[in-house]
Computed example of a mutant assay.
Amino acid sequence: MHDSPVPLLENAARGAEWAWRDIVDRYSSLVWSVCAQFRLGSADTQDVSGAVWLRLVANLARIREPEALPGWLRTTTRHECLRLLRHQNRQVPTDDPLLG
């Protein structure tokens, strides 16, 4: 993980599928470890992970310091975890078939 993410991000921005795969392979464990700190289950972790990768795609051109990608991913994952937990806290489970 000591290799610079700069060439990967540059190639990913140009649409290189191999670069995206390498980014995900390289940093998935970081995303999952942040989710583990929030004690998310597997399904929620997968949801958060997917949201993080989508945010990276959407913000790729806005990342000013590519060397800081691990920190960006950590922060984005924390925000997505908190968003998920806030959303779960607003849901009220019910057995009423009319509401389900």
Results as ranks from 00 to 15, higher is better:
43 A>D: 14
43 A>M: 06
40 L>A: 01
49 S>E: 10
99 L>R: 14
99 L>Y: 12
24 V>K: 06
76 T>P: 08
69 L>H: 08
73 L>A: 01
62 R>F: 00
22 D>E: 14
4 S>K: 13
88 Q>H: 06
58 A>H: 01
57 V>G: 00
63 I>D: 05
39 R>F: 06
82 L>W: 14
66 P>L: 05
58 A>T: 11
52 V>I: 08
65 E>M: 07
74 R>S: 05
95 D>N: 13
86 R>V: 10
81 C>R: 00
60 L>I: 10
90 R>N: 13
100 G>V: 14
64 R>A: 15
57 V>L: 00
65 E>C: 09
95 D>G: 14
31 V>A: 02
13 A>N: 10
9 L>W: 02
25 D>Y: 08
43 A>P: 05
1 M>G: 12
80 E>W: 07
59 N>F: 04
44 D>H: 01
36 A>I: 09
90 R>S: 01
75 T>Y: 10
5 P>M: 09
23 I>H: 11
78 R>Q: 13
87 H>N: 10
76 T>K: 03
26 R>L: 02
74 R>D: 02
26 R>A: 09
40 L>Y: 00
38 F>W: 07
47 D>C: 05
68 A>K: 12
4 S>R: 13
3 D>G: 08
60 L>N: 03
27 Y>N: 09
14 R>K: 15
42 S>N: 03
86 R>F: 12
85 L>S: 03
98 L>K: 10
16 A>Y: 12
76 T>H: 05
84 L>Q: 03
62 R>K: 01
31 V>K: 00
70 P>R: 03
32 W>N: 15
6 V>M: 12
54 L>W: 07
22 D>L: 08
81 C>H: 04
41 G>F: 07
1 M>F: 13
58 A>K: 06
45 T>W: 04
62 R>V: 03
82 L>S: 12
92 V>Y: 06
40 L>T: 00
6 V>C: 12
93 P>K: 14
34 V>A: 11
83 R>V: 03
49 S>P: 07
47 D>Q: 07
86 R>E: 15
14 R>S: 15
89 N>L: 10
88 Q>R: 09
6 V>I: 13
51 A>P: 02
60 L>V: 08
53 W>S: 01
44 D>C: 02
58 A>F: 03
41 G>H: 05
43 A>H: 07
49 S>M: 14
83 R>K: 13
21 R>Y: 11
5 P>A: 08
19 A>P: 08
96 D>F: 08
36 A>T: 07
42 S>Q: 11
